[in-house]
């Protein structure tokens, strides 16, 4: 596992992160992220044996709510912070490839 990020890797991660970076940003972030990853690489030396990954601090499970309808936000509250809207819709630049979404 290499702890140094190439410019291409930084660009790839920036793309996944939806961050528009300049050439300078790519160089600077590449250097900083590399040094952090180098530090973080010490995790590789830990003998984790067969330890299960811990994703929760507390032994909680099966927290459920009853299927009861609660009020929605009024439409003006829904749209209050919207940077761009038409009628009661949020808007984005026209999406040409409707398949760009997920699955």
């Amino acid at each position: 596992m290499s702890e140094t990020l190439s410019a291409a890797q930084v660009e790839h991660v920036a793309r996944l992160s939806r961050l528009k970076l300049s050439e300078d940003d790519i160089t600077r972030y590449g250097r900083q992220l590399s040094s952090i990853l180098e530090y973080v690489a010490q995790l590789q030396e830990v003998d984790v044996g067969s330890k299960a990954p811990m994703s929760h601090p507390l032994p909680l499970h099966s927290v459920l709510r009853d299927d009861i309808v609660e009020p929605s936000l009024p439409i003006d509250a829904v749209l209050k912070n919207a940077p761009s809207k038409v009628g009661a819709f949020f808007t984005v630049p026209k999406v040409l490839d409707p398949s760009a979404g997920g699955g």
Partner: peptide, 12 residues
């Protein structure tokens, strides 16, 4: 996401 013809935006 609604893409109406003639509109310059898509609506959510």
């Amino acid at each position: 996401l609604l893409h109406e013809a003639g509109q310059s935006v898509s609506m959510v």
